[in-house]
Computed example of a mutant assay.
Amino acid sequence: MIKLISDLPEGVVAAVASGEVSGKDYETVLVPAMENAINTHGSVRFLYHLGPEFKRYSPSAMWDDLKLGFAHFTAWKKLALVTDHEWMAGAARMFAIALPCPVKVFPNARYEEAMRWISEK
């Protein structure tokens, strides 16, 4: 499941993933929010929180994640991943070199710091 975090600065999208994230979560929650931010501001700053309740991605969610990233490749302004899941943190660090924006990975204990960083223009 993906839930959006509200009351954020313009151009920032933040979401919390818990349990199993499905393709439907991407299609009905995350993709519309991202596309709205990009259409409105021309770019997006994105914080993704994979907290302790996060279990896994379905194969369709992994596919939708990849499609979302490439469909708007030049619109990424900043990306913050907040997680204690080392496999996700490692993957984010590995792919960060291929992304056109700054990417930072934060542990759950530094969530507030991540939120401040992603909110800065």
Rank of each mutant, 00 (worst) to 15 (best):
F106L: 11
E53I: 04
V103Y: 10
S119K: 02
K104D: 13
E53Y: 05
S58K: 05
Y111S: 11
M88P: 11
I5Q: 02
G69I: 01
D7S: 13
G19Q: 05
L4Q: 06
Y57I: 06
E120T: 10
K3W: 08
G23A: 10
V21W: 02
E112S: 14
W87H: 09
I5A: 00
V12Q: 13
V105I: 15
S43Y: 03
G51V: 07
D84Y: 02
R110W: 07
F46A: 14
G90I: 05
N108T: 13
W117A: 06
G11N: 01
G69M: 01
G23R: 10
F54L: 14
M115Q: 13
E35I: 03
Y26I: 06
F46E: 15
V12Y: 12
S22V: 08
S119W: 03
F106E: 07
S119L: 03
E120S: 12
W76C: 01
A80N: 11
H49K: 15
T83Q: 07
E113D: 14
M115A: 12
M88E: 13
A71L: 05
I97G: 03
E86K: 09
L66Y: 08
C101P: 09
N36R: 15
L66G: 00
Y26S: 04
I2C: 00
D7M: 09
P32K: 08
K78F: 10
K104W: 09
S6F: 04
A61E: 00
S58L: 05
Y111A: 12
R56E: 06
R116E: 15
L99G: 00
V21H: 01
K121D: 14
E53H: 11
V103P: 15
N39V: 04
E20Y: 06
I38R: 02
L66E: 02
E53A: 15
G23D: 09
M1Q: 14
T83N: 05
E120R: 12
F95N: 03
A89I: 08
K67C: 04
S58C: 06
N108V: 12
I5K: 04
P102Y: 01
V31Q: 11
E27N: 03
S60F: 00
K77Y: 06
E112F: 09
A33N: 05
L47E: 04
Y48L: 03
A71Q: 09
S119E: 00
V31C: 11
S119H: 02
L4S: 05
M34P: 08
P107A: 06
V82E: 09
W76L: 05
E10H: 10
H41Q: 04
P59C: 02
A92L: 10
G23C: 10
D84G: 00
E35V: 05
I97N: 03
L99Y: 05
E10P: 15
A109L: 08
I97F: 07
A92Y: 07
P102E: 05
Y57S: 10
E86F: 02
D7H: 12
V31L: 15
V82A: 08
I97T: 07
K67Q: 09
V16Y: 03
V21A: 01
